[in-house]
Amino acid sequence: LLRLRPADVRLARAEPGNTAPVDRLWDTLVRDGVRAVSANGVLGDPTGADAEEGERQLRAWADDLRAAVRSRFGG
């Protein structure tokens, strides 16, 4: 969000939540929701976030999605 809509982010209010790897939280997260694994609703630690990291994440997600679609549908 810092990369896409920085004016909507109040980084001064950012606080860490559950920093355990998501794969360890997944079953409980799916079954019981975010509150079951994070009292403040945050997964990870956003306090060091910046727009450049957001850009890298968006590009990586887009690359992963593109690869998954190509793998599934060819091209």
Rank of each mutant, 00 (worst) to 15 (best):
T28K: 03
G48N: 13
P46V: 13
R56K: 11
R56D: 14
L29I: 08
P46N: 02
E52D: 15
T19W: 01
E15S: 12
R31N: 01
D45M: 09
N18Q: 05
T28S: 08
N18A: 03
A20S: 15
E15G: 00
N40Q: 05
P21N: 08
D45I: 10
L25N: 06
R13S: 09
P46Y: 02
W26M: 13
V42H: 05
R35C: 10
L43A: 02
R13I: 12
G17S: 13
R56T: 04
L43P: 00
E53M: 14
D23G: 09
Q57A: 15
L11N: 12
G17Y: 03
V37L: 07
P16V: 04
L58K: 14
G41N: 04
D27H: 06
G41D: 09
V42S: 08
Q57S: 15
D32W: 12
E52L: 09
T47D: 06
R24E: 13
R31L: 09
W26C: 12
R31Y: 05
P21R: 05
D50S: 14
P46W: 04
N40Y: 02
L29Y: 10
N40I: 09
P16A: 14
L58T: 13
G54P: 01
E52R: 12
D45K: 06
A12F: 02
N40A: 04
A36S: 07
T47I: 07
V30W: 01
A39Q: 01
E55K: 13
V34G: 00
A14E: 15
A14T: 09
N40W: 08
T28C: 00
L43H: 04
R56F: 05
L43Q: 02
G33Y: 01
V37C: 04
R56N: 15
R24H: 03
A51H: 05
R13F: 03
E55H: 12
A14F: 12
R10G: 11
W26Q: 08
Q57K: 03
S38D: 03
P16S: 11
A20I: 06
L29P: 07
N18D: 03
V30L: 14
N40S: 06
R56L: 11
G54H: 07
G54I: 13
T47M: 13
A14I: 11
R10T: 15
T47F: 02
L43D: 08
S38E: 03
V37F: 01
D50R: 12
T28L: 00
L25A: 09
D23M: 03
T28M: 05
G44T: 01
A14D: 14
G44V: 02
L11R: 14
T28G: 10
E55W: 07
G41Y: 00
L58W: 06
V42A: 07
L29F: 03
E55L: 14
L11E: 10
A20P: 00
E15T: 07
G54A: 06
V34P: 00
V22N: 06
E52C: 11
A51P: 15
A39I: 00
V30P: 03
E53C: 10
A14P: 02
A36W: 07
G41H: 04
V37A: 02
T47K: 04
E52A: 15
P16Y: 05
D23N: 13
G48V: 10
L11Q: 15
G54Q: 02
Q57P: 01
G33W: 00
P21H: 10
D50A: 12
T47G: 06
A51E: 15
G41M: 11
A20L: 02
D23E: 14
